[in-house]
C-alpha cells in the first residue's frame, strides 16, 4: 500500500466485519519524539487470545473464499520496516484495539496520504457506523466525530453527496490548519 491511509481503510474493514458500531481512529504525529502513532479501536465482537495471536500470520483468515489474510500482516510490516512496532489487544465481546508506530522521519515510511478520502469512503459505505477520527500534530488537535455531524444533520443521511463533500473539505481544511496552515 502506498499510503498509510489505505492501511487504515483496510484495517477498519476488519472492525466493520466484527460488527463494530463505533470505530475510533487516532493519528498522532509527534515531531519532538520523531514518532507517528496510528491507533484503531472498535467495539466489535473482539477475539480470544488464541485468535489475536494468529491474525499477524499471513496464512490466517476468517474468510473461506481464500487461504490468506494480508491486511494486518501488511500493516505490521509497514510499521516494523520503519523502526516502529505493532500491538494488538482484543477481548471477546468487547472489541479490538490496534496500535502501529513508525519513526516519523524514517526514509521508508509511507506518507499518511489522504485521510479525507479514507474517511469519505468509510462514511459513504457505512453511514450506520459511528466514526471518531482524531488527528494530532504536536499540540494541535482535530476531531471528526460522525455522531456530532449526525446530530446537526438530523434526518438527513450522512452519505448524502453534499454532506460527503462537506466532510472531505472539513477534513482537508482542518488538517492543513493543524499542520501550520501550509
Amino acid at each position: 500500500m502506498r499510503e498509510l491511509s489505505l492501511h487504515i481503510l483496510d484495517v477498519v474493514q476488519n472492525s466493520l466485519g466484527a460488527k463494530a458500531s463505533v470505530i475510533e481512529i487516532n493519528i498522532e504525529e509527534n515531531i519532538k519524539k520523531d514518532l507517528l502513532i496510528i491507533e484503531i479501536k472498535d467495539n466489535g465482537s473482539g477475539m480470544d487470545e488464541k485468535m489475536t495471536k494468529k491474525v499477524m500470520d499471513p496464512f490466517f483468515t476468517t474468510r473461506t473464499t481464500r487461504k490468506v489474510g494480508l491486511g494486518i500482516p501488511l500493516f505490521v510490516h509497514a510499521a516494523k520496516s520503519c523502526g516502529g512496532d505493532f500491538k494488538i489487544q482484543s477481548e471477546k465481546g468487547k472489541g479490538t484495539a490496534i496500535e502501529a508506530s513508525f519513526v516519523l522521519s524514517h526514509i521508508d515510511r509511507a506518507p499518511i496520504g489522504s485521510m479525507a478520502d479514507t474517511m469519505v469512503s468509510l462514511v459513504a459505505m457505512r453511514p450506520d457506523v459511528d466514526f471518531v477520527y482524531r488527528h494530532c500534530v504536536g499540540d494541535q488537535v482535530f476531531i471528526l466525530d460522525t455522531q456530532e455531524i449526525k446530530k446537526t444533520l438530523q434526518e438527513v443521511p450522512l452519505n448524502n453527496p453534499m454532506v460527503l463533500d462537506w466532510i472531505k473539505r472539513f477534513i482537508e481544511d482542518n488538517l492543513k490548519e493543524i499542520n501550520g496552515g501550509a
Binding site: L6, G71, D165
Partner: peptide
C-alpha cells in the same frame, strides 16, 4: 458494490469508489 478487501484497496478501490460517488453526484 465495491470490493474493499486488502486486495481491492491495494489495487485502487478507494479512487474507484470516490469516482463513482462523484459521478452519481
Amino acid at each position: 458494490v465495491v470490493g474493499m478487501g486488502t486486495c481491492g484497496i491495494a489495487a485502487g478501490a478507494r479512487p474507484v469508489m470516490l469516482a463513482i460517488l462523484d459521478e452519481l453526484k
